[in-house]
Design a protein around this nucleic acid. Structure first.
Lengths: 106, 106
DNA sequence: CCGGTTGATCGGTGAATTACGATGGAAAAT
DNA sequence: ATTTTCCATCGTAATTCACCGATCAACCGG
């Protein structure tokens, strides 16, 4: 994961509504989460929610599964894990050099 | 750390130049990092760099120490750690419900 | 078919972001 | 004291973002 990708993902996470959407998706069991559900727990217009969803989609953080008249969304836990490790790597890279140099072996 | 704070910090991290600035600050030993150093390893105008620095400053990710004619910047490792735990908590909250213990009620 | 529902996408508006050069003020060097 | 260096800030243009209402394709139930 490169800087640009990380920054991109971070920006996708950089909005409280989008964080909330992720949480909503997490609380529903996978497969039950359609756009309408998200919309009416969010006091935002449907188009706005759809747009936020698109951002998360583009960032690869969630997945769309068309299912008849409703679309289902769910978290992409693989991406989340990837992001987690990338984020860990980022923070590790920012750690003080003095702390790294002795405990550097594997 | 609330959603808004997390989102705010994430947005601060949501730009490759700012990630790069953090990395630059990390590689210099603490206290040696003035704005000019950052600027000329970045092919951006000084004012632009200063603005990015301000964003990081406002997010609390870095610290300014005026020092004569030069300002010194350094990472705020405490904030970074805080962010790390907040991020971990976020991801944990997004983990599949099945993986969460039932002792979730606090 | 026809009407109802879902939800992505389009068009528009106002605010925020990103970039730049220019300005100004404060310390350091002369 | 004058000049030089550093750099935060201002002003500004271009771009993107967040939000909305409206629209339209697709699907399902009659």
């Amino acid at each position: 994961m490169h800087d640009d990708d990380i920054a991109n993902t971070m920006r996708a996470l950089g909005h409280p509504v989008r964080l909330e959407i992720l949480r909503i998706l997490a609380t529903q069991q996978q497969g039950q989460c359609c756009c309408a559900d998200v919309t009416d727990s969010l006091t935002l217009a449907q188009s706005t929610v759809s747009q936020h969803i698109k951002v998360l989609l583009d960032a690869g953080l969630i997945e769309r599964k068309p299912h008849g008249t409703r679309n289902r969304y769910c978290l992409r836990h693989d991406k989340l894990a990837e992001l987690n490790s990338a984020f860990g790597g980022l923070l590790k890279g920012l750690a003080p050099v003095a702390a790294n140099k002795e405990t550097e072996q594997a």
